[in-house]
């Protein structure tokens, strides 16, 4: 993983120290740090497991296993978007696995599809959405199906726009690991070292993004959205902006979406919130830089946003008041 600018890191650490020790009485700061602590405690164990899985991929996944995937790109995208069913991890845990899969040579389009669909198309998210919506199966079913369609569409779209040049140039089989080890070491030890290295670098972006999301959540009240709730187009757009700013884990976002109430916000706007959040939010935006160059991130943002918006609007138009 490529080193980032040190200035940004130093600036971040200085800001943290000022916030904690000089502005610690501010409710904005304290609420932001409470959000940060919740996000990190919930997601870090998943990230650690994700990194260990990534390390095992690096050491044990034979390259021949991914060679077949390179030949049939569309098929690979469609299969990869279903991988979350077998490996139900949240969006933060996906990145370290993705990094190592890309180094192994998995097609970038397929990796992108897995990254976008994995946190939505999985049984844990289905169950949490089912519980949040009082066991109405229509909502989780719509979420999973729409999430799959969006992930596959965006992966194909981004691949076409960028002509396959999706990931950072320094990733595939060329990124020199900072691990100084001995080839005679057991594979499991090398896998743990890969994981240890990955977490330290991905974790930095994760902590930064989580604090930024906490600050934004503290700074803006959700009641401002009430003014746009009556217009479905604005409600969908407003809920998508909120999902981007809040950076809530896919496992718990359904409860927040449901708390907006059908009386205020149409269900299509709540679905837009639940579809966009796991694919694009502040902390993810920073973490995406680990595997994608800025050019890809800049193409991803409008592709994901527009696709989620159009799918949510289509759901609203097709089902009308029922949704």
């Amino acid at each position: 993983m490529k080193p980032s600018s040190h200035k940004l890191d130093v600036l971040f650490l200085c800001a943290v120290l000022v916030m904690l020790f000089l502005a610690g009485d501010s409710p904005v700061i304290r609420t932001a740090f409470l959000s940060l602590s919740g996000i990190v405690l919930e997601a870090l164990p998943f990230m650690l497991i994700g990194a260990i899985a990534g390390g095992l991929v690096e050491e044990y996944l034979p390259e021949s296993a991914v060679t077949k995937l390179r030949q049939k790109k569309i098929k690979a995208i469609m299969i990869a978007a279903l991988a979350g069913l077998a490996l139900p991890v949240c969006e933060c845990a996906v990145i370290p696995v993705l990094y190592r899969l890309l180094r192994k040579g998995i097609p970038p389009e397929a990796a992108l599809a897995y990254m976008l669909a994995g946190p939505v198309v999985n049984p844990v998210v289905f169950t949490s959405t089912l519980v949040a919506y009082r066991f109405n199966p229509m909502v989780p079913a719509l979420r999973v199906i729409a999430g799959y369609i969006i992930a596959v569409s965006v992966a194909i779209l981004v691949s076409r726009i960028l002509k396959g040049r999706i990931i950072r140039d320094d990733i595939p089989n060329s990124s020199p690991s900072s691990i100084k080890g001995n080839a005679k070491e057991p594979g499991i030890i090398r896998a743990a070292k890969h994981a240890a290295e990955d977490i330290l670098k991905a974790g930095k972006y994760f902590v930064m993004g989580a604090l930024f999301a906490g600050l934004l959540q503290s700074a803006f009240g959700r009641d401002v959205l009430l003014s746009v709730a009556s217009n479905p187009v604005l409600a969908i757009a407003g809920m998508m902006i909120l999902a981007f700013l809040l950076s809530i884990c896919a496992d718990g976002d359904a409860f927040v979406a449901a708390s907006f109430g059908k009386a205020f916000f149409p269900l299509s706007s709540q679905l837009a919130f639940m579809l966009l959040g796991p694919m694009l939010d502040i902390k993810l935006l920073l973490m995406y830089r680990i595997v994608f160059p800025w050019k890809t991130v800049l193409v991803l943002i409008p592709c994901i946003t527009l696709t989620v918006f159009l799918v949510s609007l289509l759901l609203h138009l097709l089902t009308g008041a029922a949704l």
């Binding site: 650490l13 330290l200 930095k204 604090l211």
Partner: peptide, 12 residues
């Protein structure tokens, strides 16, 4: 970079 990454991971 290693020192900064370590420090940032310890912020929480």
């Amino acid at each position: 970079e290693d020192i900064l990454n370590t420090a940032i991971m310890l912020v929480p």
